[in-house]
Simulated scan of single mutants.
Amino acid sequence: MSQEAGHGHYYVPAPSTYPMTGAIALLFMGFGAAFSVNRLPIGYGLLTIGFAILFYMCFVWFRTVARESESGKFSAQVGQSFRWGMTWFIFSEVMFFAAFFGALYYMRIYSVPWLADLEHKVLWPDFTGDWPTAGPGIREKFMPMGPWGLPAINTLILLTSGVTVTWAHWALKLNKRGQLKLGLFLTFALGFLFVGLQAYEYGHAYSDLNLKLTTGAYGASFYMLTGFHGFHVTLGSIMLLVIWFRVMAGHFTPENHFGFEGVAWYWHFVDVVWLGLFIFVYWLV
């Protein structure tokens, strides 16, 4: 069923091979990851093939959806579906990070003090239960990551990117294409800069602070929270880059631009999560 948006019908695309293509990519990536972990040379080749197929699938699928949007096939009802879909997606991401923040809270407030009480002194007599800690039984020394320096700089970078994407959004609403292009460019550039600085921070943590993923409770929570957030920043930056290419191609109008708006929602979510990370992971050590 493919009706024009002007008649108020809900556009349903024709059957697609893209989901099957994505499944094939994940099959290659799964076997590639398994072989790579076991140090079999074929694994790296399979991973490369899998990522190449996945990149191809994303490119042609996104291109198809963009063409459908620009051709006027999406009615207001389809747009409402997109908004609900993005809303529930971001909600699921909120719950994802809430689980990790909850685990950090439980460790700091309950499990670590519990392991240091009198009942457990026989097992770990030298364990005090102070945070940050790797946990009882782990003797390797490490230094926690402080809030100032790179973490503070990255906080400023993400807050600035939130301002630039909002500037770009208002420029789009006012049909100021030059400001829109510049604001979007600054936003994804700041996002990639954030990821680069976080990679440098990880190198510093490993080499200078002896802070690793294997450093017990603190190391695991630090890298899981900041690592997943870094992945989301990377994904968001790629999404912004795609939207920028669409803007350069003349896509989006002040009246019809949910593709831009949905990515902006996601980027603001990434900003808010980082503020929580900065406070509870870096500052309140």
Rank of each mutant, 00 (worst) to 15 (best):
F252N: 00
T21D: 02
M95P: 00
A264E: 03
H169T: 15
I42F: 13
R83A: 04
G146L: 13
A116I: 05
G219A: 06
F82M: 14
S221F: 01
F258N: 13
V242N: 02
V94R: 01
L193A: 15
F252P: 00
A199C: 11
F97Y: 13
S75Q: 05
L118M: 09
L156Q: 04
I157S: 03
L27G: 06
V247C: 14
V12N: 10
H232G: 04
L235E: 06
G129A: 02
F260H: 11
P151F: 04
S221A: 15
Y44F: 11
Q198Y: 11
T214D: 11
W167P: 00
I243L: 09
W170M: 08
S237L: 03
L184E: 02
D126N: 10
L47A: 11
R139S: 12
L123R: 12
D130W: 07
F74I: 05
F269I: 07
L197Y: 14
T166D: 07
A189W: 06
V285P: 02
H169M: 09
I153W: 04
A66V: 10
G129M: 06
G227R: 04
L54A: 15
N175F: 03
L180C: 11
I138A: 04
E201L: 05
I53W: 03
E261F: 07
F91T: 09
T48G: 15
G6Y: 10
G191E: 02
W88N: 06
P151A: 07
S81E: 05
N38S: 13
W167Q: 07
N256T: 08
Y218G: 00
S71A: 14
F252I: 03
F245T: 10
T253D: 04
N154C: 10
T214W: 02
G219S: 08
G102Y: 10
A205V: 01
A217K: 01
P113N: 08
V272R: 03
S161H: 08
W265P: 02
P15H: 05
G8I: 09
S75M: 08
G191M: 04
M29R: 14
M1V: 12
H169G: 07
W244G: 00
S71E: 15
G250T: 06
G149R: 11
Q179F: 08
K176I: 11
L186Q: 09
G183K: 02
T160L: 14
S92F: 07
Y202S: 06
A25C: 12
G72T: 09
L193M: 12
W61V: 02
I24L: 13
F55E: 09
Y105W: 14
R177I: 08
M1E: 10
N38Y: 08
V37K: 13
A199H: 04
G149W: 06
T87K: 11
I53D: 00
R67S: 09
A264K: 09
A23G: 05
W131N: 01
L235H: 05
L40D: 08
F194E: 00
L115I: 02
V37I: 15
H120A: 02
F55A: 14
L225K: 00
F74N: 01
G216L: 01
F91C: 07
L211T: 06
A152N: 01
G162L: 07
Y10L: 14
G102N: 06
T187C: 09
N154L: 07
L158C: 02
G50E: 06
A189P: 01
Y282Q: 02
L277C: 04
P136K: 04
A220N: 03
A189Y: 01
V272Y: 08
W124Q: 00
L172I: 13
W124T: 03
K141W: 07
